[in-house]
Computed example of a mutant assay.
Amino acid sequence: MNAKTYDRIATIVFYLIAILIIGILVGLISFILIRGLGHISFDFLTSHPQRIRAGGGIGPQIFNSFYLLVLTMLITVPLGIGGGIYMSEYAKRGWVTNMIRTTVEVLSSLPSIVVGLFGLLMLVNFFGFGFSIISGAIALTVFNLPLMVRITEQGLQSVSVQQREAGLALGLSKWKTITSIVIPEALPSMITGMVLAAGRVFGEAAALLFTAGMSTPPLDFTNWNPLAMNSPLNPFRPAETLAVHIWKINSEGLAPDAKQIAAGTSAVLVIVVLLFNLIARWFGKWIHRIMTAGK
């Protein structure tokens, strides 16, 4: 066979692999949505759960998931972007830099259950945060931070050297070149890192079982004092997220309609993750277009 025949065969194989991956994804999402959409209603999305009776909803769990996401990203994004900028633009080659990269890679490969146990020992017990949202946010930061650092570093390194040299040749300082030229060009990659980190926050359960807890106290959504125990904004209260709720409702099996609740919660979780990904990518493209003057 000649080179063109090999090329056609390789092209067909790669197309088939792509179709297989898309088919698996579509099938999985369709299965979850078909099983759960029938159980979703306004009452289900806004009411409190019932542990031993039929009915109930996931209102507090939805709020907890988004609140935990916001707190985690407020910690992860500045540290991750800062670490990526340092590793890409300022760190000198040597054993210190290699050790940092090795540490980042080791942290990114840690099982979430190990991170959860670390959070239980250090955050919940040693520092006395207890089972709380802040404990969960810090624990999620531990294994989301390496992801943000690596993706930010790779995104910055993908920007051509000529663009950096052009900025310096125009008299810009190194920091001004990074903020005005390098970061805008690397923004799509950085947005991808943020989306991946946010997806892990939404879907994480193991680490949160040992840090954020498996229950939510009665919340008063009219009380926005972050120091009050019944306030939804209190970061030091326990918080059961959607992923933890799915695990708990299935493991307990006390509610007569536990399977329906789990199916509905799974469908809500999938829809939220899909919408968040689409909105985040659209927002990232919009910001990139503004920062690069529409080019």
Score class of each variant (00 low, 15 high):
8 R>P: 03
10 A>E: 14
19 I>T: 11
21 I>R: 04
23 G>L: 06
24 I>Q: 08
24 I>Y: 13
43 D>F: 08
47 S>L: 05
50 Q>C: 06
50 Q>H: 15
51 R>W: 14
52 I>T: 15
55 G>D: 11
55 G>N: 13
56 G>F: 12
57 G>L: 06
59 G>N: 08
60 P>Y: 04
62 I>E: 07
64 N>Y: 09
65 S>Q: 04
74 L>Q: 10
76 T>I: 04
83 G>W: 00
86 Y>T: 06
88 S>W: 02
91 A>M: 11
91 A>Y: 06
122 M>D: 00
123 L>S: 00
127 F>I: 09
131 F>C: 00
132 S>D: 06
132 S>T: 09
132 S>W: 05
135 S>V: 08
137 A>P: 01
139 A>H: 01
139 A>W: 02
143 F>Y: 14
146 P>S: 01
150 R>S: 13
154 Q>S: 13
156 L>T: 07
159 V>I: 13
162 Q>N: 15
166 A>Q: 10
166 A>D: 12
168 L>A: 12
172 L>N: 09
173 S>V: 08
175 W>Q: 11
176 K>Q: 15
182 V>R: 00
185 E>V: 11
187 L>M: 13
194 M>V: 15
195 V>M: 14
195 V>S: 11
198 A>N: 07
213 G>C: 02
216 T>W: 02
218 P>N: 12
218 P>R: 09
219 L>W: 04
219 L>Q: 01
219 L>R: 03
219 L>S: 01
222 T>W: 11
225 N>G: 09
235 P>Q: 08
240 E>H: 07
245 H>L: 01
249 I>D: 01
249 I>E: 08
251 S>D: 11
254 L>E: 14
255 A>L: 07
260 Q>A: 15
261 I>W: 04
263 A>W: 05
264 G>I: 03
266 S>Q: 13
270 V>C: 10
278 L>M: 12
282 W>T: 15
287 I>M: 14
288 H>D: 12
293 A>M: 13
294 G>T: 11
